[in-house]
Nucleic acid binder design. Structure first.
Lengths: 208, 208, 208, 208
DNA sequence: AAGTAATCGAGACGGTACGTCCCGTCTTACA
DNA sequence: TGTAAGACGGGACGTACCGTCTCGATTACTT
């Protein structure tokens, strides 16, 4: 479960006394998601989350040490689980992963959510590490596996720059999401996949 | 040119009375740039700008209606002017533009600056329009011209998706800048240029 | 008693959650009193009060809705409690009350404090009502009781205009305090008391 | 002309160049009076005066060195000229002066105007001196002359405290104006006059 | 069953930045 | 030089939101 990798929830583990209320966990994340969707990251207030969730602020801060962490957790929930696809062809596998990514990031709040997260990562290294090692890494590793399988199959040249290939697969999507506002759709997914397959083929011309 | 297109400075144009003091314009932008460099976007305070510039806060707000607008203007200043290159080859022209982009966005504060800007664009459509129509559009139009010239020369296939090509040229750079933290260097520039040239060549295979 | 009647402190009464901190009440009023004494009303800054009291500005504004209200409360504290005197003679009772008033209003900051308050009352009806119903009314009612006792004793004529008598007792003091800068001393106290006793005696000449 | 005594107008006397525009003088004082009446001292802004008068702010500050001075000048205009009355009786003369005072201070803006002036005097000694030496002194000296004539006529005791008598005549009026909000009317005027005449008569009882 | 300890909702707290307001001065171009 | 217009430096205002703390009331584990 991708959400797991970002499960920052327990700040400290209690050893006795009244246990954490699981309904509060749910209510907080639910309220956060709603408010993020309604208002965007920028107008997202911890007081509002508390009120909407019917929860004290301390109850939130007992679970998430800062607003940014709560946003990160909420984003983590939105991002779907990733399974390594096996369609039988490199193109099919890449398209499967890219379609999934398009699904996730074409949601209405994805843009605001990611923008806020990106800005929050800028002044919180720990958060940045978690995000990069969390849902981003999951998708990235799946793509890497598919690419390496493609090299093995002879669909892709052995000398290709894997990091570059990953950034070409993911970059345009995030670029449109965060910067240009361009469409995040199947055409984009197919475009980058075919570009990779054709541009990094075994003719060897595209190696740096 | 590029700098011009982002000249958001005059909120309103006075018609009589004491004119705006050009030294204040300079002092404000200078102080903003310094503080942005020293502290980053998120520790950037309007009071500090005013103090550093030796200016009243009202004098800043007379020029920029919010903190975000000032940051946007400062970013605009940082981004260098773009001239349409003419090296004789499509590859040379593309590389020239990409090298220039690498220069600009590999500066130490570029990342924090752009992250703040991207987040600010999320809740200010006017600002987003200015940024997209400003320094981003300038670079984009230059790249578009080079690509179209490449199609004319037969270096690139006529059916290529120009928007996709532009996003493949710019996306990985911004992806690394804002999300992955990957290196923004010559290798990236050459990688995407060669991928475009090889992947979108005239064999026609890569069409949508 | 007098202090009680001006206890404007609670803007709203909480019913749950963390209760107001009584030490903050004390610190705020203490700091306000000190600063009023040191600087006077017109150099009195809310930021300074907050800093001196070691308190956030919001904590002050939670108790006093404006600077004027805080000044009013501080003035209320300065004004001593009034006990209805009973010296056995009308002259003694009146002198007792007037001596007390002289004590209070001959303090060095009384003038600046009252001037500020009077000006603030001009654009805040609620504040005016509080001041008039508070420490002013307390002294006024005490004087009224003594006068009525004096009428009963035959020291004062039954037809005297009580309101006028009260204003003759208090007016010259405030006139000197706020306008002429004349001395506020025992001579003034005795002068107005004897004038009232002689001018409003039972010969009936001064009626209407 | 009482207005004269407060004519602070020329901050500095020009010696050559373009002469002051007399229409500006008029427009400024007129606008100030209107705004004072409409809004009260507290919401009285120099920018508004300039706009209403159709005049630059510098033109105002060339005539009045501060807001307080302008308010003082405006008050001076409102206060009517004082002629020493001669009705043939001490009571008639006192009543004449007090009726005049009642007329002046029962005007609707008198209260706000005086409150603002009193507060301004608190932190501007020069202004205080001018006000006290100006329209206040004029009325005071007239009253003093009448009282002394009354002593000569045997209507008032020779040992009376003249300063106290003056403050009893004026104090209640200002007390009601600034503090209690009580009525400023003929009854007040007659009340204090008769109190003075009866309380300070030649029986000598009321001397301190 | 009593005691202990961490939980809960509510909301006050210290701190800090924001963007607005107004003062009194200064700077234009014009008269 | 005086003028209208309005920008300027300065500095206080009252608001907003963060993350912490405090209250009285639960709710489990531990004796």
């Amino acid at each position: 479960m991708e959400l797991m990798s970002i499960e920052i929830t327990p700040v400290a583990t209690a050893r006795s006394g009244r246990p954490r209320d699981a309904r509060a966990d749910e209510a907080i994340l639910g309220a956060a998601l709603e408010l993020l969707a309604e208002l965007g990251v920028h107008a997202f207030r911890m007081d509002d989350v508390a009120k909407r969730a019917g929860v004290g602020k301390a109850t939130i801060y007992r679970r998430y040490e800062s607003k940014e962490r709560l946003v990160a957790a909420a984003v983590g929930v939105l991002v779907s689980e990733i399974a390594l696809p096996d369609t039988g062809s490199t193109r099919g596998d890449l398209l499967s992963l890219m379609h999934d990514a398009v699904d996730v990031y074409s949601r209405p709040f994805a843009s605001g959510l990611m923008a806020g997260l990106v800005e929050a990562m800028r002044h919180n290294d720990e958060l940045a590490a978690e995000v990069r090692g969390g849902f981003l890494a999951a998708r990235r590793e799946a793509l890497r596996a598919v690419i390496e399988r493609g090299v093995g199959r002879g669909d892709l040249g052995a000398e290709l720059d894997v990091e570059l290939a990953l950034d070409v697969l993911g970059g345009p999507l995030f670029y449109r999401l965060l910067v240009t506002g361009g469409p995040i759709d199947e055409r984009l997914a197919e475009g980058v996949v075919d570009l990779i397959l054709h541009g990094f083929d075994t003719t060897g011309r595209s190696k740096r």
